[in-house]
Design a protein around this nucleic acid. Sequence first.
DNA 1: GATTTTACTTACTAATTAGTAAGTTTGTCA
DNA 2: TGACAAACTTACTAATTAGTAAGTAAAATC
Lengths: 191, 191
Amino acid sequence: MVKIENSKRTILNLAESLLQDRGFNGFSYADIASALNVKNAAIHYHFPSKEALAIAVIQRYRERFKLWINNARIKDLAPQEKLNWFFKIYEDFRVNNGKVCLVGALEVEFNTIPDGLKKEVESLNRETLAWLEVTLAEGKKHGAFQFNGTPASKAALIYSSVQGSLQMARALGAKKFREVVEQNKMDVLAA
Amino acid sequence: MVKIENSKRTILNLAESLLQDRGFNGFSYADIASALNVKNAAIHYHFPSKEALAIAVIQRYRERFKLWINNARIKDLAPQEKLNWFFKIYEDFRVNNGKVCLVGALEVEFNTIPDGLKKEVESLNRETLAWLEVTLAEGKKHGAFQFNGTPASKAALIYSSVQGSLQMARALGAKKFREVVEQNKMDVLAA
DNA sequence: GATTTTACTTACTAATTAGTAAGTTTGTCA
DNA sequence: TGACAAACTTACTAATTAGTAAGTAAAATC
């Protein structure tokens, strides 16, 4: 028994990283197994199917996001700082070897992924959007933000541009991502 | 000799559609062959490798875009109408069975695609961005558009949000895409 | 100290993948 | 009429894929 310490978590970490790096169709059990120096079947022992593995990754991410936004360290922040924290999540993805948002990656492959996974992606997308919407509404109410349109559609614009620019940064460099973040701030911050 | 009329073009059409639908790793030669009722090898006869096929798809798309923007029907349009035409391209993708932008799709899979294809994606991305930038600058100069920041960063925001929202529409429906387009217009059109 | 459980390995399968080589049929052109 | 090229098919290969079944060694539990 060779045993990786905390195999399940290690596998989830690797799978999350691979999903953000190469997409669902871009990695295999062999990638994970070889990285952990175990055999393919060892991964199947912990996660019977690729669908189950990817679902577990998204569920863990959803839990994490939920914990973050309900934690006082973020909950009690001013709207502008909340937004900064949000952008920082993706800035960290970018710095971390050009990773992309899980939601965007899986939506590109949406027509090829299992149904259970689709539902998880949809949930994560809705939850992220909901938080952004509330944050924008709050900031507008308090005079920190200024924008036309509903908080919902502004949230959709911001989130989709972050997803898109993370992808764009793959071909055009990290600068493009940061440009989009700065433009978003400019477009929403009250003068 | 069964022969498809204009095989090369028919294959390119199908490959483009499959790329937008399922991504580079999400389709195979068998998908194209079976749709055209020919054997796999027939596709290899026209395009020796998957890389060559995908490159040809992007190159054709680039040519098409170049023709459009240099055509008087679009070149002579007012900036607002140019922007509407631009959004319309992607609205048509969306209507056409939830297709996604080629650039976004291939950038999600960027770390898994051949180098020659990466270069094509980068070129298409740059060319699209360049046209948008010029259009935004022109509109701002003529007073049709109003926005903070450079035309370049505003172009990056708009393009990445279109890409992102096209993907988002997969999980959340076409409404999300249209919401983002409308928000973009609101954020750029002079009151 | 014996038994059971956990975390694997070994050894597979069946399907799918991109790609190739050698033929075959049809149309074109000298 | 004969040569040749275009557009295929047949028949492969070698690699990779997700997934399974049966066995094994170590650790935990009784």
